[in-house]
Structures are given as C-alpha cells and as structure tokens.
Amino acid sequence: MSAVFIFLAGLLLASSLAAVMFRRLVYTALSLAVAFASLAALYLHLGAEFAGFAQVMVYVGAVAILIVFALLLTRNAGSDPEHPGHGGSWITGAAIAVLVFGCLAFNIVTSSACARPMPNPPSITTRQIGESLMTRYVLPLEVLGLLLTAAALGAATLALEDKRKS
C-alpha cells in the first residue's frame, strides 16, 4: 500500500464524512468539493488521466457549484433545525449503512478476484480514447448528448415554471 494511496484515501473519507455530518450547509458544499478533488487525484494515481480531469471539470467545477447555488437559493429554508439523535429513524439508517458495508467488505475480502496482481501501467493516449468514442462507443455518445440536452432543457423549465405561471 503506497503512501499516496493512504493520504488520498484518508482525505477522501474525512472530507466525505465531513460533507454529510456538518451542520452548516456551506461547509458541506466545500468539503464535498474536497472529496471530489481527492477522488480525481485517486483516478490520476490509478493511471486514468482523462477520467481524473473529467472528474475535476464535471464534479469540482460544475456539480459542487450547482450545489452551492441550490443552497443559496433555498437559504431561508431554516438552516438546520434537525436533531439527528432523536427518533429511531436515524439509528435505523446508520445501522443499514453499517450493515451494507459489512456485507460488501465480507464479500470483497473473501473474493478470489481481488488477488490478481497489478498489470503494467497501460499506455492509454487521449487519441485512443477519442477514436474509440467515435467508433465503438459512438451510439452511447449520441444518446448521451441527447440526454444532456434534455436534462438542460428540463432543468431550465423546472426552475422557471413558477415565474411563468404568475
């Protein structure tokens, strides 16, 4: 286990835990950005440069900013009057999460597929990625373009709806 992996994994776990535990919602958005950035660094560490930079652009650049905008637009909703200690639902949710992790970890540790050695780092160039996007994966790419257009139009329509009615 390399030191870079330990550092990035610790940063990822700490910032994602902070993102879901903080009371102040602005801190939540900022630690979420840190979690996304450390995940991008993990992708770079694994040799997937293109996916790492896509992660930085899409998640750190767009999704985190979107969440900040949504938090600001819904700012008056009462910042956080929640009491996570009361009621049984909090305990139940946390227990389910721990249980799911237990099942996943048991299956991961006992699986034989994890014992395979690490192959040599693949030499994937951006040219190769672009060529396979234009040949083998061209239909998913077009469908994805359609989906993104529909999502952009749908999000704009949803957010504007109230203004049009009044």
Binding site: L13, S16, S89, W90, G93, A97, V98
Partner: peptide, 14 residues
C-alpha cells in the same frame, strides 16, 4: 465500499 456506505447513510438519515 466505505464511500458508498457513507453516501447511503447520508441518503437514509439526513
């Protein structure tokens, strides 16, 4: 798996 469980816990409890 740990990251997934953190996300699942957040989605279920918050």
């Amino acid at each position: 798996a740990l990251l997934f469980s953190i996300g699942l816990g957040a989605a279920l409890t918050r």
